[in-house]
Amino acid sequence: MNMYSLKVKDAQGNIVDMKDYQGKVLLIVNTATGCGFTPQYDGLQNLYDKYKNQGFEILDFPCNQFGNQAPGTEEEIVNFCKINFSTTFKQFSKVDVNGDKEDPLFTYLKSQKSGLMGSAIKWNFTKFLVDRNGRVIERYAPATAPEKIEDKIKELI
């Protein structure tokens, strides 16, 4: 199995083939609109604005598994992010990142890079940096600000 063999659903419910992202540097994030880390959307958008024309994409997967902090519908989440953070990067449908119903993409990402306390994702805004060949280069904890990832993104671009 590799990341490019997987399919995910976007915020509008359309099936997206991960192979569409082959050759791009990706930052894949499980997010929430009611989390203490939600202001990281500003940093994520800043990174996207700087590097989107150089083959960089942010893939935003809302997750309601941690403290019910992403309770809205996909449409409500997209609108919240656009209104409050002017987001323009791709948003996907809500997913589980742990457990019996976890999305296969996150199963794959976790199998490639464990966190400090094992493979389970501990909270919203865990970030996975993926190179142009689909290799998971780094996994970042929720408290890691997007700005702290910029140098690594520049290396991969």
Score class of each variant (00 low, 15 high):
R132Y: 07
L59F: 04
N84I: 02
K94W: 08
Q69K: 12
N53V: 11
D131E: 13
S111M: 10
F89Y: 15
N98K: 12
V78D: 12
R132I: 08
I121P: 08
I137M: 12
K110A: 11
Q65T: 05
L44H: 00
E102F: 00
W123R: 02
A32I: 05
E76S: 07
D96G: 02
G55M: 05
N68H: 15
Q112A: 10
K52S: 14
Y140W: 06
T38V: 07
K94T: 12
L59V: 11
V97S: 00
N79V: 07
Q45H: 07
F125E: 03
P62F: 12
T33P: 00
E138L: 00
T38Y: 08
C63K: 01
G115T: 03
Y51L: 08
G72Y: 10
T73K: 04
N124D: 09
N46L: 08
G55V: 02
S86D: 15
L59E: 03
G118Q: 12
G55C: 12
G115C: 09
V136F: 03
T126A: 07
C81Q: 11
Q69S: 10
T126C: 11
V95N: 02
V136E: 05
R132A: 15
D100S: 11
D96L: 09
T33E: 08
E138V: 06
K110N: 11
F128K: 05
